[in-house]
Design a protein around this nucleic acid. Structure first.
Lengths: 151, 151
DNA sequence: TATTGTTATACTCTATAACTATA
DNA sequence: TATAGTTATAGAGTATAACAATA
């Protein structure tokens, strides 16, 4: 049977823990004087791991709408971290490509993010993490199809 | 032994699930033409549940810094949903109080939030929810002391 | 006509510093 | 001097609508 208060608490806890983790990362970034916001780092990291994606794909996975992705890619491009490569087979779209500098900056920042993650999950076993993640993924599955944005 | 990739994935999943849940709530609010942002609703809800708190206390729990809480309370006050009550024993501070209208608006919006939470946790048992929440709380405990803001 | 990306606009949120008033 | 709250400012993110170009 469903438990109203439990579900209220878990969603509240989920949102606040996500926020807390983000704030903690922002402050770790500030301490190290890293020149990217966490959002920009998120996009850069995703592009580094998945070279040549269309903006639309980045948009869908990272849950930023099209104008937002345009803006963030502009910032990263201005900083010389990514490039828009025209797609030969479809002149309407671009493939987003991490530059050498982009990969270096990402590599330079990564240890800070690793420290953030280790701090956040300190004292929690792999099994516990894995179980928690599986529940979070089910929550994502429940919502993913239902969220509409300008993608 | 720690697993680097697992910890990367769980933090990514945590932040993105929190974001997704928030976006879903925002859209549910928009559909119903509710006149509050989710952040404003969060603050209003917290004030309704905990009448007479100082701004500083709201600030600490909701992880918004002082200027931010000032701004949000201003918005809620302008909408007639909360009041600043001067504290008799300390003329420097205010107790934040939900007005009758504030409680009504909160009550009116609550079913939408309940639907959001039910949708998000559909098909997940109470035990699973509880376990997941306990892990999230441990992550919070790991980070809470380390986050500094203008509070 | 539908899709991808851009532009414009307006608002909310965030972060920091500096200020006021009180303790 | 420290604390609670406010003000000012700048920038980042979000949401929507409308537009251009291409498929």
């Amino acid at each position: 049977m469903e438990n109203y208060y439990l579900r209220k608490r878990v969603i509240t806890t989920l949102v606040s823990t996500g926020l807390l983790t983000k704030v903690f990362a922002v402050q770790a970034f500030a301490e190290k004087e890293l020149e990217l916001t966490t959002t920009q780092f998120l996009v850069l990291g995703f592009v580094c791991d998945n070279d040549g994606l269309y903006q639309r794909q980045i948009s869908a996975v990272l849950l930023k709408d099209r104008p937002n992705i345009t803006r963030i890619i502009n910032i990263l491009e201005k900083k010389g971290l990514v490039e828009r490569i025209p797609d030969k087979s479809n002149r309407k779209v671009f493939k987003i490509h991490a530059t050498e500098k982009g990969r270096e900056v990402h590599k330079y920042i990564e240890p800070t993010m690793i420290a953030v993650r280790e701090e956040a999950t300190k004292g929690i076993s792999n099994d516990e993490i894995e179980f928690c993640m599986s529940i979070l993924e089910r929550i994502q599955d429940n919502l993913k199809e239902k969220v509409k944005m300008q993608i």
